[in-house]
């Protein structure tokens, strides 16, 4: 089963293949930057930065219905903001986000780029 649904994005891009590809490229780059930001924040034990990066990349993920990744990002955002998570749990969650985002990226690249 696919990790995303892309129809809404195609429609929003006006079925313009060049713009659609540009948006996918940007998605991959900005999600990667966001995950890198989370990993850095984790090393610095900076919870507010963790919440910020999770918040920053969740909207595009929701747009392409990458539901698994959205759930992980929302969990990280909420828990890091409320500081209810142990460092090892947080570490685990960021790893899951990294892995989910890598899989998503590969699927997208394989199919569209």
């Amino acid at each position: 089963m696919k990790k995303y649904k892309i129809d809404a994005l195609k429609e929003q891009c006006g079925y313009d293949p060049a713009f659609f590809n540009e948006m996918l490229d940007t998605f991959i780059v900005s999600t990667e930057k966001g995950v890198e930001g989370m990993e850095e924040a984790l090393l610095k034990h900076d919870n507010s930065a963790l919440a910020y990066y999770a918040h920053k990349i969740v909207s595009p993920c929701r747009h392409i219905e990458a539901d698994n990744l959205v759930l992980l990002l929302k969990e990280l955002e909420n828990k890091s903001a409320s500081e209810k998570m142990l460092p090892e749990e947080m570490n685990e969650l960021v790893k899951k986000i990294r892995s989910e985002s890598e899989e998503l990226k590969e699927e997208l690249k394989k199919e569209y780029l």
Binding site: Q12, C13, G14, F19, E22, M23, T26, F27, V29, S30, T31, K56, I57, S59, P60, H63
Partner: peptide, 16 residues
């Protein structure tokens, strides 16, 4: 908008 992806989407939408 700090997210490049969402920024592009907004610009595209407005320029319709």
């Amino acid at each position: 908008e700090d997210n490049e992806w969402y920024n592009k989407l907004l610009v595209h939408t407005i320029l319709l």
